[in-house]
């Protein structure tokens, strides 16, 4: 974040150092935008932390009118969301390791000097960014691989992205060639160079894309919905979706006072918070790095 914040042109221009009307306008606009983003989330936090009665009386309040953790304990006791958590953590962990290994190896191979077939393989990979078989042929392929109702279907398919590989490749390309030469002279073979010279040098970039990949697994919903049938294998997002959709059906007809037989608005928002929190915990670590990742990508383009 630092390199972006410390804009070089900025110092030259803020030489006057006087707070102008323009500064006020910029500040006001940006603050309104930030509030627009934060308010819906804040509102959801408050609703998740109060009793249904308090919510029915005051649907809008700046703090929980009657503080209660009942929505959360209800969800945990019901167990469905717990199953979702377990499956998603499992899928995210295995999937991130596998996908990152495949991507990093491929990116490194594409970043090296010319060899027969390199360009062809690279173009074939890029082509999939813009053209693919689409949903049905992919689904039928999953079926013929026996991946229906299997968590492996999600693990194997979801995490590899051509875009990530391209950015990782340009990261590897930026390593100074002298380092590789020096290692070679020291008698290191390709394998040693890859693991002990190249990978450590790309630490921040690898961290960024590991986290991106983990987020992609964590948020994956479409293929879990298509592939998984048994309730024991449901992922967090599918469980969350079923909780939310059930409540939405009730909220549609009434005026938001959800039917108590189905999930109440409070439980619904509590579920949303539970799905969000793990990502929010990683976010500060992620933020430090991702600007670099995006920048390497933009240089490439």
């Amino acid at each position: 974040m630092k390199s972006v914040a410390e804009h070089p042109g900025k110092t030259a221009r803020s030489g006057l150092n006087r707070w102008t009307r323009g500064d006020t306008a910029v500040f006001v606009i940006l603050t309104v935008v930030a509030l627009l983003i934060l308010l819906p989330f804040y509102n959801a936090v408050v609703i998740s932390l109060e009793t249904n009665r308090a919510y029915a009386l005051h649907p809008v309040s700046l703090y929980p009118a009657e503080f209660s953790l009942k929505n959360y304990t209800y969800l945990i006791e019901k167990g469905q969301i717990w199953t979702g958590f377990q499956n998603t953590v499992l899928i995210t962990a295995i999937g991130t390791v596998l996908s990152m290994s495949v991507s990093v190896m491929m990116a490194y191979a594409f970043s090296r000097r010319k060899y027969p077939g390199k360009r062809l393989f690279f173009l074939l990979m890029m082509f999939t960014m813009f053209f693919s078989g689409g949903m049905i042929p992919t689904y039928l392929q999953m079926k013929s691989l026996g991946l229906i109702d299997s968590r492996w279907g999600i693990i194997l398919f979801v995490g590899v992205s051509s875009y990530n590989i391209v950015v990782l490749k340009s990261g590897f390309e930026q390593t100074p060639p002298d380092l590789e030469e020096a290692a070679k002279i020291d008698g290191a073979n390709d394998l040693v160079i890859f693991f002990s010279v190249m990978l450590p040098l790309q630490g921040p970039l690898l961290a960024t894309f590991t986290l991106f990949t983990a987020v992609a697994y964590w948020n994956e919903w479409f293929w879990s919905m298509l592939l998984i049938n048994s309730s024991g294998k449901m992922t967090l997002q599918t469980v969350l979706r079923s909780i939310v959709a059930e409540a939405a059906a009730a909220a549609d007809v009434s005026t938001g006072e959800a039917d108590l037989d189905v999930f109440s608005q409070g439980v619904k928002m509590a579920a949303v918070m539970m799905a969000m929190v793990p990502i929010m915990c990683f976010y500060p670590f992620l933020q430090k790095y991702f600007v670099k990742g995006v920048m390497v990508g933009s240089i490439k383009m």
Partner: peptide, 8 residues
């Protein structure tokens, strides 16, 4: 939740 009929 934010834009619902009974929402904020």
């Amino acid at each position: 939740n934010f834009f619902a009929n009974g929402g904020m």
